[in-house]
Write a protein that binds this DNA or RNA. Sequence first.
DNA 1: CGCCATTGTATCATTGTGGGACAATGGTAC
DNA 2: GTACCATTGTCCCACAATGATACAATGGCG
Lengths: 245, 245
Amino acid sequence: MRPEETFTEPATEPDKFLPSVSIDCVIFGFHDQQIKVLLINFKNTDIWALPGGYIRLEENMDEAATRILRERASVEDIYLEQFYTFGHRERVCRDLQQRIFDALNIPLSPDAWISQRFVSVGYYALVDFSKVIPNPDEHLQVCTWFGFDELPPLAFDHSEIVQKALSTLQARLDHNIVGLNLLPDTFTMAELQSLYETILGKKLLRTNFQRKMLGMEILERVEKRFSGRAHKAPYLYRFNLSRAE
Amino acid sequence: MRPEETFTEPATEPDKFLPSVSIDCVIFGFHDQQIKVLLINFKNTDIWALPGGYIRLEENMDEAATRILRERASVEDIYLEQFYTFGHRERVCRDLQQRIFDALNIPLSPDAWISQRFVSVGYYALVDFSKVIPNPDEHLQVCTWFGFDELPPLAFDHSEIVQKALSTLQARLDHNIVGLNLLPDTFTMAELQSLYETILGKKLLRTNFQRKMLGMEILERVEKRFSGRAHKAPYLYRFNLSRAE
DNA sequence: CGCCATTGTATCATTGTGGGACAATGGTAC
DNA sequence: GTACCATTGTCCCACAATGATACAATGGCG
């Protein structure tokens, strides 16, 4: 199964997919003190959108989301969570959709279910920025990271979807161990704090943050870092969930 | 538009509805110190299920949920919230579905989308038990309240849906003002506490619960109750959201 | 008319959090 | 080599939030 099958097949082989339902993935990364989102851009257009896809008849919905993510971001064992389903009547703009298919030179019959109304199930993924290789297929020009605050205008209701993904992530910050998925294997306390501050959109007190994180007993210290920078070298930490009981 | 149209139409007039997507509603009430759930029972069967329905092409998804609720529980201005979307491959059992349609004497073509796989969007509603008039239509034998701990076996994956609805409600208890929707206009502190204890499934300390609720400044005291029972008569309270600022 | 379960409130101990003090560290500049 | 200094790790204090208990007020009931 080649990655690019997903995009063309629903138009050419509609019977292999579940009609009226799509999946859109908000893939979050963290780099340079910034939340990043992976966006795609269709060939011959300037249209940016969330990576998404459709559910094959033989797939569970979660499996479909995992596959879509694998195809776009080339990552396995991903942290993936469903957060909301978007079902506004006019959420998919027909004209814009037509423009995309025209640009790709794929025929789109107005009768096909893929031309009709959609409900889209939103998933967000937390991935280690450094391990992701964006993976454009033959229909995509680019597949790139954008800073959360520098997103281009997005197709359809994708801006709303991104916004809802972030607010859900904020609300679940206590339960999701976001660092485990968004950071490299080892990291400094400052990096972890910067991640939390970026997600929450506010500054935290360094000392209290450190106290709280260490108190959770899910961090393990590893050897001192050989800091390239000046000043006192911080510890490196690693997540160790087995310590939490 | 008569209520019962919803159930037959997708089979007879599939083009009026969005294929592959259904809505299932978990309608919560509170009575006799118990969380209640409204269930339906199809005529000539012993099959219990959640009230559900389909999305008309001209409806937003939220509107569809509101309509389904109105048709089943005859309540307007309902507190309704989407909580999860269920998309397992085998979640709708074909045989069971066939049995329902046979019992109702409605033809069900195996080719129709309604015979195929579904994704179901779950909504939960919080309603004032005393104001709800369960409203069975011509295809339903009964439409009744069940205690949450005394639910009969449910069709398809509806047990899982109910469970997820409650756990979501628990998680959102801080943000949702559940009392506003689940209790009558006026109520005692003991009733409010009992509601919270039932939802959370654990006892709370009376004095601290009272302190916390009063501290939120969303309750307003009304005249003393003429308690039929012995002992000190408690205050009656009413929600007054304008006080929260 | 006193009993007593219930209710409203005050009080104290414990824990959690905001905020700052301070010593230790380890490149950098001299 | 040495003084410097921003960063880091830790401790401490003040105050808020919460757990838990004590106690007075109430109002039907016997």
